[in-house]
Amino acid sequence: MTTDPIVCLHGITSSRTTWGGLVLAAKPLGTDPHCLTLLGHGPVGERRRADGYCLEAFVADVMAQINRLGLQRFQLVGHSLGAHVASMIAERFPQRVSRLVLEELPVPARSRADSGPVYHRWSGALIKVGALSGYRRFDPVMVSRVLDQLGRPRPQWWRDLGRITMPVLMIAGGNDSYLDQTRFALVAAELPDVRLVEIDGGHRGHITRQEEFLAEVVPFLLGPTQN
């Protein structure tokens, strides 16, 4: 059985409580996942901020939290923005990540000629406008800065995918998701040890199709180690 601790990263405008189902499923198996809070999220007086909210700052902040927990090697689960941050951590610290779950990963463009992570460009604008009403739970400025970065080409991220050599489970949300589902296969083609599955629950399948999500993720994280 895999014994490395589990670290979970929530999506943009979400919170650590989104992983309640995974926590409840893992505890009887002897594991209590560490559910972290990303930059710019949480109550106004408690949230951690960063100038510009560059994606590299999210990576540094998550790694600082992990290091404070004393975790040397861990399994990493991420949803949406959390999945993208998790992918960056796996690229930069592959020796510390034993397994990786990427749910509804926003896949950026390789170049200006490539498409971005969403089906329609106005999806980002709608999310930015909607974020204004959520300022008590997250920083709307963070939402805007992050979406701008994910909407631009990230060729270095693509080049570094080859560093992700640990087992990877990619989860797509199906037709109800606003992310372009065709892009997940492009990422999977760059990874040596990956399984891509679809859970037809939209962008938040870990909530809308929780049983199906757990049926895939729990055995992957806590099942027998593959040789």
Rank of each mutant, 00 (worst) to 15 (best):
L186R: 15
M166I: 06
D32Q: 10
L126Q: 04
N227T: 11
V77D: 05
N227F: 14
M88L: 12
S87Y: 13
S14P: 02
H120L: 09
T2M: 12
M1L: 01
R68D: 08
P153V: 11
L22H: 06
N175D: 12
A64Y: 02
T225P: 02
G201P: 04
G78C: 06
Y135D: 01
E56V: 12
P167M: 09
L76G: 03
G78V: 11
L39N: 04
D176I: 01
A113G: 13
L38C: 07
Y135A: 14
E198N: 07
T182Q: 11
S144N: 01
R136H: 15
T208V: 07
T3Q: 09
A185C: 08
E198R: 15
V7F: 04
P219G: 02
G124A: 04
F213W: 01
G30H: 10
N227W: 08
R16N: 05
E56K: 14
K27S: 03
H203R: 04
E212S: 04
A109M: 15
V143T: 02
P117G: 08
Y135F: 15
F93C: 11
H10N: 00
A83R: 05
L126V: 09
G201M: 03
L69I: 09
G174T: 01
V97T: 06
C35P: 05
F184R: 06
V101H: 07
V23Y: 06
G52N: 00
Y119W: 15
V7H: 05
G82T: 09
S80R: 08
A189C: 01
D51W: 00
E198A: 03
M88R: 15
D4R: 13
I171S: 06
Q156L: 14
A125L: 14
P140W: 11
T31Q: 15
R16I: 01
E211G: 04
A26V: 11
G223Y: 12
I127W: 07
E56I: 09
M88T: 08
R110H: 12
L55P: 00
